[in-house]
């Protein structure tokens, strides 16, 4: 099913789900505080236990959100990794858009003045 791409957007479909399984499984484990502590204590060992691909491990090391998405990461699971780093969704937004956090927030605010009547 070919559909026109949505710019700046990766849909988490079967292809992504297959690619990202190990990464997402690791991030899912971060629901548990014990696992978050284990990751923090030894990131490399923890990633090895979950059999991350080299590209996934590298993106984790570099805290590279776009790289994690490209490597099959799903935003709902990656959010738990962001939690470990103490990042909120606006930090993530800034990191992905190349803006400072202040600029990113400013951009969100500007949507307040979108005209209501424009064609949806």
């Amino acid at each position: 099913m070919q559909q026109r791409p949505i710019p700046g957007t990766i849909l988490f479909d079967g292809a992504q789900a297959m690619k990202g399984y190990a990464l997402n499984r690791m991030c899912f484990s971060f629901n548990d505080a014990v696992n978050r502590a284990a990751f923090k204590a030894d990131e490399e060992a923890y990633m090895q236990h979950y059999a991350l691909s080299p590209g996934q491990a590298d993106a984790i090391r570099r805290r590279d959100v776009l790289g994690l998405l490209a490597a099959g990461g799903n935003v709902y699971y990656l959010a738990k990794f962001a939690g470990i780093l103490g990042l909120d969704v606006q930090d993530l937004g800034a990191a992905q858009t190349g803006l400072t956090k202040a600029e990113f927030k400013e951009r969100l605010l500007r949507h307040q003045t979108q005209p209501a009547a424009a064609h949806p």
Partner: peptide
């Protein structure tokens, strides 16, 4: 809203209000 990708921060007020 959109959390992920270069399009993070996307919001569509006209669509929301129509919806």
């Amino acid at each position: 809203h959109q959390l992920d990708g270069e399009r993070a921060g996307f919001i569509n007020k006209p669509f929301d209000l129509k919806f």
